[in-house]
């Protein structure tokens, strides 16, 4: 494979609070991102996907969060860099798009200044050059009349336009890696599709790699090359997009797919939800965290934690994977 753009090895994040049991938010996860590749991190709320992204960016609070393992970007170890050193890379090499476009923009500063700020900081542009470039960027992300928008405040833009502006800001310095943390969750469905196609359009054909963090398998289906399914802080399945949708191996992935409505399903067919909720999890040290909710559970699942092993070209962490794939067609939308 050669050297990947981003190599995450045995990354763990533990939150410690005085007088409380430490919480293991991310538990020994490893994955690679190649230049130009789009990698999905999928899972339900609380599975550790956002914490993973914050750990890569070095944005977790220094007190309370214990990060271990290794994150190398272009061969350079990111963990353990000082905030000052990280500031040189964040925004220039590593970009991030957040979930809520309104609260992620500074309400009292015009959009234009929030773009030029980054350009002046990392690309050493003058105020004037930065303004021209900012206009160009807003135009590229499909914001009409960019010259006027530069002087407007976030509350004067619609939700979709705010997210476009955030993407423009994140891509301003042409980062090598863009992390999008649920970039469409706060948007209307129609706008969601537009934002996703914008993202893939901006990323495809360039060197920029994209880590897509989402709970929405529809997003994954449309965008990602490779998908990591996370559960309880660990990766439980990794597969190429086609393989994942055609042949989900882990019962959790299978359950996620079965709980999504499909256009080609017979009318009146009921959705199959996954039983229980995350609070039912058992600790990975005791067995498989998903066991209490798993339809395929064995005796072994409650006592013997499964390892992540190679499986049909991907990776899988399960004692009793789903054998037959009842989902005939690939894709969900």
């Amino acid at each position: 494979m050669g050297m990947a753009l981003l190599e995450v090895r045995d990354l763990s994040v533990v939150f410690r609070r005085r007088g409380e049991e430490p919480t293991i938010a991310v538990d020994n996860i490893s994955f690679d991102v190649e230049p130009g590749q789009t990698v999905g991190l999928v899972g339900e709320s609380g599975c550790g996907k956002s914490v993973t992204s914050l750990a890569i960016m070095g944005l977790l609070p220094s007190r309370g969060a214990e990060v271990s393992g290794s994150v190398t970007f272009e061969g350079e170890q990111l963990l353990g860099l000082s905030q000052r050193q990280l500031d040189e890379r964040r925004g220039r090499d590593l970009g991030m798009v957040f979930q809520d476009p309104l609260s992620s923009l500074n309400p009292v500063v015009p959009i234009g200044l929030q773009i030029t700020e980054v350009l002046e900081r990392h690309r050493r542009m003058s105020r004037k050059e930065a303004k021209v470039e900012g206009e160009h960027l807003l135009n590229r992300v499909g914001i009409p009349d960019p010259n006027r928008r530069l002087d407007e405040y976030p509350h004067q833009l619609s939700g979709g336009m705010r997210q476009r502006a955030l993407i423009a800001i994140a891509l301003a310095c042409r980062p090598r890696l863009l992390i999008a943390d649920e970039p469409t969750t706060a948007l209307d469905v129609t706008i969601q599709a537009q934002i996703l196609s914008l993202l893939s359009e901006l990323v495809s054909g360039t060197d920029t790699a994209l880590i897509m963090i989402t709970h929405d398998l529809g997003v994954v289906a449309g965008l990602c090359d490779e998908v990591n399914v996370m559960y309880g802080g660990r990766i439980v399945e990794r597969a190429q997009r086609h393989a994942l949708f055609a042949e989900p191996r882990h019962p959790y992935t299978h359950g996620l797919l079965a709980s999504i409505p499909r256009l080609d399903a017979p009318r009146g067919e009921k959705l199959v939800p996954i039983r229980g909720s995350v609070v039912d999890n058992i600790a990975w040290s005791r067995g498989c965290a998903f066991a209490p909710r798993c339809p395929n559970q064995l005796e072994q699942c409650w006592s013997d934690p499964p390892e992540l092993v190679e499986d049909r070209g991907g990776m899988l962490r399960c004692h009793n994977p789903v054998e037959v794939a009842p989902l005939a067609a690939e894709g969900t939308r």
């Binding site: 040189e88 890379r89 925004g91 957040f98 992620s104 900081r121």
Partner: peptide
């Protein structure tokens, strides 16, 4: 707040974060 986290994710310098993103708000 989120927009301060977002500004940090862009590598904005600490001085600018305080005087442009935190103080005016």
């Amino acid at each position: 707040s989120d927009h301060v986290l977002a500004a940090k994710a862009l590598g904005v310098k600490r001085r600018a974060i305080v005087f442009r993103h935190i103080l005016p708000n």
